[in-house]
Nucleic acid binder design. Structure first.
Lengths: 340, 340
DNA sequence: CCTCCAAAGTTAAACGTTTTTCTTATTATA
DNA sequence: TATAATAAGAAAAACGTTTAACTTTGGAGG
């Protein structure tokens, strides 16, 4: 590899001069500039990133900490991050925490979580990253898991405390939108298969649904609310319960696509036509939603957009370290298919 | 951040000595070692990776080039790579080529492909990675897309030419295994919904099926072979054709889960019970396979294992650059569910 | 009593940049 | 004409390590 010194000799100037033409840090005579440029081309010179970083203290590298890359929305977010960073000449060190298995018995494992996260952070900091993006789930008191640090940090998807910068999606509004959509289609008896009763998304989505219902002058009877656990099985179970109620609801809002799938199966088995006898909607827009019979109308998580925004935020923070924390909530869109 | 010089002063030795105790590169007296260790602890010293790399020429960083992180097996492979690299103190720069959209009209786009790939490679090389892992699809003459280079390179999932190191999974054997499995369940009339007629996996899997059939003394009539395009729709279409044939097959082997899903839908609509009236199997073990009615028996891609092995290989190649190329083909396992 | 060698450290030169300070030459100002 | 100001570039000191080459000391061997 050609070094700056080689170029300098070739052009008959000092390395300082070469540096200045490369970075445009000083005004130089056109002739010299030209000579240096020629020499650069001739030597096929590329600056050595390591030396540059060592000297300048900036690596143009962002550390991305993911709870588990195999987790559903994660890949999309990472994709958005990567695309955006690339465009600005940043690169990305990805570190996977492999936390997928332990998602629901989290509270017992808070210590293990903390350790893995701090390990990850240390690892990234040892790599001299300019900033860190944490990509993870909701519903956990993330701030307690992070030791304080001076590296700029943004949360993507998940969110920390008031003092952190994060970008997430809107639970309330999306659920409200979907509810309004169902109402606009003539439904007045809308039942809900919720997620884990004490989880953050369940509470927020529930709130959105209630809001929209209330605005339309409708009520949501207690019996119409069934709490599941986000899994397929709970979708089937809760739907069975729902079918026993009189008057029977005309639409079921499952808080994720997996439970919606379970729901549709039961409806099928009961000989109910979707959407004629019962409308079903989900949340997440997993791949499975496209392939259900009929294809499921659901809410698409704006994963790429979350990644894009997170990347934009971290770059801003690096540029301006005194910046106040910002919270960004991205709106989800409804994917209309044939289940309502 | 404390530097080596700080530690040296604290311990009253030279930086060389500190370096030697940190790296164990020279025998030193126990007392000195002890003093240095104390000083390191006291100063909370961590070596500066950039300086280390600049001096030694090794970054302990692997560049991972993925065609699209949102693509199906990719996340699993990346997960395996990351896990393995981490254990050996390597880190990973991930670069996403965003090639997902153009997957099937590839041949026209060979130039664009080449450019994006070489951009990615340059980007990684500019980051001084010690090696590169390319994670991508089959069925493309990858070697033509890569400019020659001196950085160690291994292909994961996809594979290059004879001269490259790659790790992939076994198409032939897996398809043969599944065929034998069907035969062992008493099926003698097995139909196939294949993938794209000219694609590599189609050819290999077809070969495996024929092998197994032949060994069992069975034949595969021309009419029992339908070529689709890997998509759900072609699964429904081809199944319809299959149902018109007499004698009707008793089992359908779809070459991926999406087509299997389409197939099952048609079977359902035709009032045929799965697996009593017709057995169905797929390939890939996508998430969707678990949630079909009945759950689909299919072949699981060993994604994590591919990643693990790719990581192992690249580290070996870095350690020993003169190593001869190796090809590793990992066996897939059958996931038994209820569709046969 | 020399000489040699090993042991335990130190010195200093790299690695390839950036950037502050310094030099020299030219032009503008009084 | 003398002087200051500016322009264009060079020198050299960093950034934090590693490592080859050197020094010093203390024994061992003859």
């Amino acid at each position: 590899m050609a070094t700056m010194r080689d170029v300098a000799e070739l052009a008959g100037v000092s390395t300082a001069t070469v540096s200045h033409v490369v970075n445009g840090t000083k005004k130089l005579s056109p002739e010299t500039t030209e000579r240096v440029l020629m020499a650069i081309a001739q030597a096929n010179y590329t600056p050595n990133t390591l030396a540059k970083s060592l000297r300048s203290g900036q690596t143009h590298t962002i550390g991305v900490l993911v709870e588990d890359i195999r987790g559903l929305p994660v890949a999309g977010i990472v994709s958005g991050i990567n695309e955006t960073l690339s465009k600005s000449g940043y690169k990305m060190i990805l570190h996977d925490l492999h936390l997928l298995e332990k998602l629901y018995n989290q509270y017992e494992q808070i210590g293990a979580y903390r350790q893995r996260i701090n390990n990850g952070v240390s690892l990234l900091q040892a790599s001299n990253v300019d900033g860190i993006i944490y990509v993870g789930m909701h519903d956990r008191h993330l701030d307690y898991l992070f030791d304080p640090m001076d590296t700029p940090l943004v949360f993507a998807y998940s969110h920390g405390t008031k003092e952190d910068t994060y970008v997430t999606y809107s639970n309330d509004e999306s659920a409200a939108d979907m509810t309004r959509y169902l109402i606009s289609k003539g439904h007045e008896r809308i039942a809900v298969i919720a997620g884990h009763p004490h989880s953050y998304p369940t509470a927020r989505r529930m709130h959105g649904i209630q809001m929209a219902l209330q605005q339309a002058g409708l009520v949501l009877p207690e019996a119409y609310i069934q709490y599941g656990d986000w899994e397929y099985e709970s979708g089937v179970e809760k739907t069975r319960e729902l079918l026993c109620i009189h008057p029977r609801p005309t639409a079921i809002f499952a808080m994720n696509d997996l439970m919606a799938a379970g729901c549709m199966r039961v409806l099928n088995e009961a000989g109910l036509k979707i959407p004629q006898d019962m409308a079903v909607v989900g949340f997440d827009n997993r791949e499975i939603a496209r392939y259900l019979q009929p294809p499921l109308t659901t809410i698409a998580l704006p994963t790429t957009e979350i990644g894009v925004q997170a990347a934009l935020h971290i770059m801003e923070m690096i540029h301006n370290p005194a910046k106040a924390p910002e919270k960004e909530i991205i709106h989800c869109s409804i994917v209309e298919r044939e289940s309502v």
